[in-house]
């Protein structure tokens, strides 16, 4: 394994990662559809993945890339759970609106 990523280019990739992460955050708190909300967390995970791989290249080791494998696995697990939950919720209230769940408060 070879050419480490230069500081300049590294920050380019990290920048993309950060932007994806930030857009995911914004989507999470603005979109009311539960499915889209969770899609937005996946967007954040994308930001993390890109950052991890570029840092892995920069540091010349592979820990970042192996980390990505686990991130993907957990993303899949969380997605499975989230979708199961969404199905459950949808059956009861026939809506995917996240703001509809606000009985508990105060």
């Amino acid at each position: 394994m070879s050419t480490p990523l230069s500081g300049m280019l590294l920050s380019h990739f990290l920048m993309t990662g950060a932007i994806l992460f930030g857009l995911g955050l914004i989507g999470f708190v603005t979109r009311r559809n539960l499915i889209i909300m969770f899609l937005c967390t996946e967007l954040m995970f994308q930001g993390v993945v890109i950052s991890l791989v570029s840092l892995s290249l920069h540091h010349g080791n592979f820990e970042g890339q192996t980390f990505v494998i686990f991130v993907l696995t957990i993303a899949a697990a969380e997605a499975a759970l989230a979708l199961g939950l969404v199905v459950l919720l949808y059956r009861g209230r026939k809506t995917l609106d996240g703001t509809a769940w606000a009985l508990l408060r105060g």
Partner: peptide, 12 residues
């Protein structure tokens, strides 16, 4: 997602 990004930066 937040602490994962944090971990990424620590690794970075």
């Amino acid at each position: 997602a937040m602490f994962l990004y944090g971990f990424t930066l620590i690794y970075g």
